[in-house]
Design a protein around this nucleic acid. Structure first.
Lengths: 150, 150, 150, 150
DNA sequence: GTGGTCTAGACCACG
DNA sequence: GTGGTCTAGACCACG
């Protein structure tokens, strides 16, 4: 696993790591249930401190994207493991969408502008997903899934 | 002049000030050539440190949006000279929407689910807004700004 | 400000600090808007590392109880600063309550048992609040509030 | 024997196992004198490390709930000898409910608001449960447990 | 072996 | 001065 660290920029390293992983999960590059590199491993690969990786992982864990399992490893969450059940799921998405909308409205963007931008961005993300997924390029192979439940 | 400071968010204050001014220039709320409040004045109005306002103004000056004229004051440059502004606005909204989408996708929500929830929430927010201030724009009137903080 | 650290127990220090502060806010011992000790100060008072205090504060920040403000200090959040607006507020509470219920049910507790325990605990908390509040014991005096908006 | 492991939560696995067994003994699901699965067996059933099961059993043995008999097996002690069990259950629920209440109060929600939301959510959850398994208890039947994991 | 916590100490960004 | 980030290194808890 490789993550490009934008050496001189203002975004902190732990966020760059987290954002990249989130992106990879969103796009399907990291399959759900897949095991992430260990903290030590990724720290070594990227040449950063273990604590920095821990911080990135913990952030994602709190956000519900991955699951840090003491003594076992770190895994991409399966939707079913997410904020408990169906009703929870729906409310969570409501909250998530509401946040972005509230923020945009409070910054003075017009509803139509927001709507259009949203639609375009979502299409862009979907396209990104489709380009990654259908290839079955190693990461999502049987092997990757086999480990998932372990 | 009033600028809403998003007290507890991650964007630094000097950026919030700068972004808001850019936005106001972009939409014409601040006319070209118009004089901005003095550093002291704005700092007092917003209850922030003078250094923070200086930092915001200096950034805008460097970006060519305003002109800091030593001993005379601070003035808005001609918007037409700054395609930068419109782009800034658009990119900011792009970023904002992209964040929510990425998060939802990485949490395993389906695109259609996201799309529908978003649409519903936006409608709800619009309705909520209309109930609060059906008196028209309001946002730009001096009165509306006067005690926005409260 | 003093926090008793349960030296030999298994709860990590950063959690003990966070839980205590949460408790004090819940009970009204720390007024909303009130300023918390600086990271350095509290670290020194408790004889722990600055990073440990930062960690405790950040956790509370993420949970929406306090607000870490770069360069300014740390403050107890005012309800109005919480998860945005009224609708947000309601949804957030829904989610909060739902979590506990889901967990208790999944552990096999009967609904009536849950209901009664909840009612009793809430009464206990309310009583704790009343004992702290009406005295106006220094912390919630005018002085404390005056600083809040600063 | 099946124990639901809350894969991504903060409680360590060995405690989840121990708590569940205590709970089952407390409600009579596991009769006194009854033989528990062997360490190997349970470890395999749950897909966890043997050491983890050993740790759970040893804890219960120390607490007097079960009896580890070298070379013979593991047996449930007489519940009546253990007021400890009922208390454990009650305290656990207390803790669980207390957490949500403390959090909500510290976020500024009013007690009545909390009370009402809780009541509504509990009703909703109950209704949701009834729709899922209207076939009676089900929980204790061997069948229900067999593929609970899925 | 895997993640969790903590310290001591450095340097940075913001107000 | 206040919080934010990062490192190097230690020791612990869990599986």
């Amino acid at each position: 696993m490789w993550i490009h660290l934008n050496g001189d920029y203002k975004t902190p390293v732990y966020r760059q790591i987290g954002d990249t992983i989130k992106h990879q999960v969103a796009v399907g590059e990291l399959a759900q249930g897949e095991r992430l590199p260990t903290v030590r491993q990724l720290a070594q690969d990227l040449g950063v401190d273990r604590n920095t990786v821990v911080r990135a992982y913990r952030l994602l864990d709190r956000e519900g994207v991955i699951s840090l399992q003491h003594g076992r490893g770190t895994f991409v969450k399966t939707p079913s493991q997410h904020p408990h059940l169906a009703r929870h799921r729906r409310e969570h998405l409501d909250l998530l969408m509401g946040e972005g909308i509230a923020r945009a409205l409070s910054l003075g963007y017009a509803p139509d502008e927001i709507r259009q931008t949203f639609a375009r961005r979502l299409r862009e993300w979907q396209r990104a997903r489709e380009q990654v997924r259908p290839r079955g390029s190693g990461v999502h192979s049987k092997k990757a899934h086999r480990r998932a439940k372990e």
